[in-house]
């Protein structure tokens, strides 16, 4: 949280206005909450019949429901983790290639990055799961199965180019002296990249990388529109179809997603704060890098679904 820039520390009159505003807002929000709760209660949405299977360990369906959810969480994490690792590796390769090739050699890579970044992730997942299968690429033999790898490849196709941009911005944000110094000490350009530039770029960009993990995690749910894969959202849907309690089930599933993603978001913030404190990365560098991360790897913010 940064300091508010719009107003000073308030004087007595300002504080009074704030108190009045607070009172009004509390009344309005409480009224709104009351209306929602009454609507829910009127529709019988608080009955244990609907909530029981999700929150009451004594309920006969409780164990089965949570077994489904556990499997869902595991599958979501598995797909996200594999896609993440692949994306980082491939993204780094693309970034390095883009940085070391000449003006002309870069063109196909730039095109690839722009195209993949401009496509909806759900379309890429469709390509991974359905189209690859139809054109005869058989992923079924791999451990995990065809849908899993289709999903992973779809997610990777999108996220590797996002990472490529993140890493490129990271390298670009390093002081020029780093590269010049490395070259002057006799390192080859390849060594300079590997030993000097990339490690620092990764460190600067670590928060952005962690934030992107949130996008990957959310995007695993897109597979539910394309094929059967038992990730968290699909499991939620089958629970909801069996118990006929959409509000309750989807609330619980949403809370699980929020808990996972919020934790990752806080982790990213913490890493960033730690870097700023440690002073390993000069403040200016972090600032430019983070702005670049916010604007450069474009759709990071609104990234996935």
């Amino acid at each position: 949280m940064s300091e508010p820039v719009l107003y000073d520390a308030q004087g007595p009159r300002g504080r009074r206005r704030t108190r009045i505003g607070t009172a009004v807002a509390v009344v309005l929000l409480a009224g709104l909450a009351f209306l929602v709760v009454r609507r829910l209660a009127d529709a019988g949405q608080f009955s244990m019949e609907l909530w029981g299977p999700l929150i009451d360990p004594g309920n006969e369906a409780f164990d089965a429901v949570w077994r489904l959810i556990r499997v869902g969480i595991l599958n979501t994490l598995k797909a996200a983790a594999v896609a993440m690792v692949l994306s980082v590796v491939l993204g780094t390769l693309i970034a390095v290639a883009r940085l070391s090739l000449g003006r002309v050699g870069r063109i196909p890579l730039t095109g690839l990055v722009e195209v993949l970044r401009g496509l909806p992730v759900v379309v890429l997942v469709y390509f991974g799961v359905r189209v690859l299968d139809d054109v005869g690429v058989d992923l079924g033999g791999l451990p995990g199965g065809q849908v899993f790898w289709g999903l992973v490849l779809g997610l990777t196709a999108y996220n590797m180019v996002v990472f490529a941009e993140v890493i490129r911005a990271g390298v670009a944000s390093l002081p020029r002296g780093q590269r010049e110094g490395a070259l002057a000490t006799g390192l080859t350009p390849g060594q300079t990249m590997r030993i000097i530039l990339l490690p620092q770029a990764f460190r600067v960009m670590l928060p952005a990388l962690i934030s992107q993990l949130v996008v990957v995690l959310k995007d695993t749910s897109l597979v539910t529109f394309v094929a059967n894969y038992d990730e968290l959202l699909s499991q939620g849907r089958s629970i909801q179809r069996n118990l006929d309690n959409p509000i309750q089930t989807f609330t619980v599933i949403a809370l699980i997603y929020i808990a996972m993603n919020y934790t990752l978001g806080r982790l990213a913030q913490w890493v960033q704060a730690r870097q700023a404190r440690a002073g390993r990365v000069s403040r200016a560098t972090t600032a430019t890098a983070v702005t670049a991360a916010a604007t450069g790897p474009a759709h990071v913010a609104g990234g996935g679904a």
């Binding site: 829910l40 949405q45 959310k218 529109f225 989807f250 599933i253 949403a254 929020i258």
Partner: peptide, 24 residues
């Protein structure tokens, strides 16, 4: 912001389409 940024869009859509009709 915390709620809607950390939930997949697909889940929000399901919530709207299946949850809201329960409330009329």
């Amino acid at each position: 912001v915390t709620t809607f940024r950390n939930t997949p869009l697909s889940l929000i859509l399901f919530f709207c389409a299946f949850g809201l009709p329960e409330l009329g």
